[in-house]
């Protein structure tokens, strides 16, 4: 299946791209997509920066605009993942 990933704000500066489509095995969870698929797509070093930021809470994972409760979230074909820096407005 195909998953859309968008890197927002400084995340796009770190990855050098704003978005990408990833071909992944059906029924994959967000955690596996990040740990197994992302390094293939972005390279180990860049993927590590992104994954570390997610694990320390600096980057928030949204699926279809919804902040998922845990990384064990099941993905479906066509889902849109937004990797959004923890940021607030007023």
């Amino acid at each position: 299946m195909k998953i859309y990933i968008e890197f927002l704000s400084w995340a796009s500066l770190k990855t050098g791209r704003s978005w990408m489509w990833l071909e992944v095995p059906g029924g994959i969870k967000v955690r596996d997509l990040l740990l197994k698929e992302l390094p293939n797509a972005l390279g180990q070093d860049v993927a590590k920066v992104i994954i570390d930021s997610i694990l320390n809470g600096t980057l928030v994972v949204l699926v279809n605009g919804y902040a998922i409760p845990s990384l064990d979230y099941d993905l479906n074909d066509g889902d849109k993942i937004y990797l959004q820096p923890l940021a607030a407005g007023g």
């Binding site: 704000s9 320390n56 600096t58 937004y82 959004q84 940021a87 607030a88």
Partner: peptide
Amino acid sequence: PLFESFNKFGTGGVTYNFYT
């Protein structure tokens, strides 16, 4: 984790994010 975004872009840094 919120410092960088406020410091770099101010509150305007979230306009697109919040749209999503």
